[in-house]
Design a protein around this nucleic acid. Structure first.
Ligand SMILES: [Zn+2]
Ligand SMILES: [Zn+2]
Length: 769
DNA sequence: AGCACGCCGACT
DNA sequence: GTCGGCGTGCTC
């Protein structure tokens, strides 16, 4: 029986997800599978004997060729110490991508079959069950590639691709009319007698009229009708669907402007050609469009065309917060075929959306990060919106970059890749074919950006900036520091307040009345006097958003990570007739405010002076994004909106380009600078952080590691202590990504396994932020 | 990860 | 003497 199942038959198709997800598989030794499992077991015994004799276990396929009988399984555990894969007997009908339950030591674990083999040098056990869920082979390849690419483990990457464990299908009772009530002859004619010849009360008649449907409070009444044979009731899977904000009636396609038309045309041509053999980079595009230029409409129409060609699409947005609005737009045009995946969904919702995609019931997935792992087949289009956003980098263990994964999936499936931004990354500008949307869809003007020199200015806001804020009806003010004061210092002896776990100063939060560490969450009471000298004059330094909000004139709205009801603040500001929105980075993301007439960057130097080769890029993005958010139409007078940038480096290249809205000029120069300095994208940086509670051991481990890393590795460089662990950093700048990553992986693994590595935390980051 | 095995300090 | 600390190694 097993011999007739061709390899790939089971794992390659989305099997019925209906009998439940993980954990509810068919147990190999279970009741109605008994016959199958018995033959399996008998054959296993024989197979074991042959393996012991040095032969490969053989199975006969219909065309009499030998087929693999060994499954190489990656047990799903997080530990780095488990170095798979492990060999098991291949159960009937399984293939690469099948998910099995395996005996592993004395535990039972889930595992994914990542490879088949004909023989094994081990004594093999059989998996104890085959689960209903399986991964398409493409996603197995993705996990294996990703594990190497980001120096993580295969198991951790595989786990990312699977639906959540421990939730099954939701089962509810479904009722239908039956017997004499099966057909309602009066369905078309409201005056005719209903259910003729059947004795019914008015209540029962109403009950029958609402069927078919799910049972509820009326189950008892329905059961009585079931008893008379007028109704059937049976358990059925009742999929959970995430809530979606409605966006009115299904909307038609708006008229595109010429730029948009051209963009859609180019993507359509690429879609037509995709799947063939386009040249390198032929089907990878950068949609470079200013804020409000109508990028989303281009995405939508491209997705529509991909669907029409029988292919599927992924649409990535940077954050969960931006998902609902995008989903709503796609849904209002494309309907039920739009699924959504993100970590904010309940386990059940995620499971059900995963299966809708796996079975092909949904053919588009919209959302952040995890959407890039959607189990669709026939992928035709991958869209990454706001591609410059660093939220696309995961900062947990598989430190993957969703943009890189998106590019991999597009390449692997012959799909078209489209990344969009008003402020693209130099890497994308350099590598992708550019499509421009240079005009705002509403024809509005870009705001005037002015650099304000604050050298020698002792106040927080320069006089004109303060005046502009007083005059403006609505304004947004950006400052990238949370809290009231970022550090405290005794005026008499210079004592400062630092975190006991980290080598950083504690931040005063006045609203919550605490000193807080922004790196580990440590909290303590603010001092009344200096513990070193007893002085009561404690100076507050470093202005944060909380204090800034207090200084500003008029009605102030504050938005940062410390604010509890963030969407409420946004909404109130949006609806307000006048006021100032103050906050960190997050105020410049996503939502735009058409009636804001002034944007202010309080301290552009904070970003600019950050010691990192990307600081210029980030500064340009910060200013340009704020300019994009601020007013389309300007004030009530229709005056042009403006952006004021406070800086002590008004000659800075990034700032000057941003002030002229000249992304092109900035990117050309920035790329040239990076080429000369050998920075990405012309090289790859690999950073290894060694952390240990004991400083000497952190240092020693880093030194040993450095010896095993490729030539030219810099370090160990001490980095400030965090969460009680001393840190040492190694940095490698390499010309060739693949070999550098492989070498670092080997070095790290050689150190992780050795004695003396106890308590050592190693984090590898390729192309760190 | 989870679990057993094993080798040293200190407690019934 | 043995109880238990965790350092080490193994799981197909
Ligand atoms: Zn003091
Ligand atoms: Zn801390």
């Amino acid at each position: 029986m097993a011999a007739t199942i061709p390899p790939g038959a089971a794992a390659d198709t989305g099997r019925n997800g209906r009998t439940g997800g993980l954990g509810r598989g068919r147990a190999v030794a279970d009741a109605d599978e008994r016959a199958t499992s018995r033959t399996l077991t008998d054959r296993n015994v024989a197979a074991l004997a042959r393996i012991a004799a040095g032969h490969a276990p053989r199975r006969r396929s219909c065309d009499d060729r030998s087929v693999p009988a060994v499954a190489r399984v990656e047990p799903l555990v997080t530990a780095r110490a488990v170095r798979g894969p492990f060999d098991y007997l291949l159960p009937d009908g399984c293939d690469v991508g099948s998910v099995v339950e395996i005996p592993f030591g004395r535990q039972r674990l889930r595992g994914v079959i990542t490879e088949l083999a004909e023989r094994s040098e081990h004594r093999l056990k059989a998996p104890s069950a085959v689960l209903d869920v399986s991964l398409p082979p493409e996603l197995v390849r993705l996990a294996l590639w990703m594990a190497d690419d980001v120096v993580s483990t295969r198991a951790r990457c595989l786990e990312l691709l699977l639906p959540p464990d421990g939730v099954g299908e939701r089962i509810r009772l479904w009722a239908e009319r039956a017997g004499e009530a099966a057909v309602d002859p009066a369905a078309d004619d409201p005056d005719a007698e209903r259910y003729p010849g059947v004795r019914l009360t008015a209540n029962q008649r109403a009950l029958l009229d609402r069927l078919p449907g799910w049972t509820g409070d009326d189950l008892q009444a329905l059961r009585r009708l079931e008893g008379r044979g007028l109704v059937t009731i049976e358990p059925r899977g009742h999929g959970r669907r995430p809530d979606h904000v409605a966006l009115g009636a299904a909307a038609g396609a708006p008229v595109l402007n010429p730029d948009q038309l051209l963009a859609v045309q180019r993507l359509e041509d690429a879609l037509r050609g995709a799947g063939g053999t386009p040249g390198p980079g032929e089907d990878r595009f950068l949609l470079h469009g200013v804020t409000g230029s109508g990028k989303t409409e281009v995405y939508l129409q491209a997705a529509q065309r991909a669907l029409a060609m029988g292919r599927t699409a992924l649409v990535l947005v940077p954050e969960i917060a931006l998902t609902p609005q995008t989903v709503a737009r796609f849904r209002s045009r494309l309907g039920e075929t739009v699924a959504v995946l993100h970590s904010g969904l309940s386990k059940g919702e995620r499971r059900d959306e995963w299966w809708r995609l796996r079975r092909g019931e949904a053919r588009i997935c919209v959302g952040p990060m995890s959407t890039v792992f959607a189990p669709v087949s026939d992928l035709g289009l991958v869209i990454v919106d706001e591609e410059h956003d660093s939220a696309y980098k995961q900062d947990g263990d598989p430190r993957y970059d969703a943009r890189r994964v998106a590019a991999w999936r597009a390449r692997e499936n012959g799909a078209v890749l489209v990344v969009g931004s008003a402020t693209p990354r130099p890497e994308s500008w350099n590598a992708l074919r550019r499509i421009g949307l240079p005009r705002r869809a509403d024809g509005g003007e870009m705001p005037a950006v002015r650099l304000v020199d604050v050298r020698g200015i002792r106040t927080v806001l320069q006089r004109e900036v303060h005046q502009a804020l007083t005059d403006a009806r609505k304004a947004i003010v950006l400052l990238n520091r949370r809290g009231w004061a970022t550090w405290l210092e005794c005026a008499d002896c210079g004592h400062s307040w630092e975190c006991p776990n980290c080598d950083v100063s504690l931040v005063l939060h006045r609203g919550s009345g605490v000193l807080r560490c922004h790196h580990c969450g440590h909290v303590e009471h603010p001092p009344r006097q200096c513990p070193a000298c007893g002085s009561v004059s404690v100076g507050q330094h470093g202005l944060g958003t909380e204090q800034l909000a207090d200084h500003l004139p008029g009605h102030v709205f504050r938005l940062d990570a410390d604010v509890r009801d963030r969407s409420g603040v946004l909404q109130r500001f949006q609806e307000a007739d006048h006021g100032i929105l103050v906050g960190t980075q997050m105020i410049a993301k996503g939502h735009d405010f058409p009636d804001v007439e002034l944007g202010v960057v309080v301290d552009a130097d904070a970003t600019l002076r950050f010691p990192d080769f990307r600081s210029q890029e980030r500064t340009f993005q910060l200013v340009a994004q704020l300019a994009g958010r601020a007013g389309r139409g300007g004030g009530p007078s229709g005056a042009r909106a403006s952006v004021l940038v406070q800086t002590r480096s008004p000659e800075d290249r990034a700032l000057r380009h941003a002030a002229r809205h000249d992304a092109h000029g900035f990117l050309v120069e920035e790329l040239e600078r990076r080429r000369q300095l050998d920075y990405p994208p012309f090289s790859t940086l690999v950073r290894v952080m060694c952390e240990h509670e004991d400083e000497d051991r952190a240092q020693a481990a880093a030194s040993v590691l450095r010896e095993r890393m490729p030539e030219g590795t810099l370090g160990p460089v001490p980095v400030f202590r965090r969460q009680g662990r001393f840190r040492r950093q190694l940095l490698l700048k390499a010309a060739h990504r693949g070999s550098a990553v492989a070498a670092v992986r080997a070095a790290v693994e050689s150190v992780v396994g050795t004695p003396g590595a106890r308590g050592l935390v190693l984090a590898v980051e390729v192309d760190p932020r």
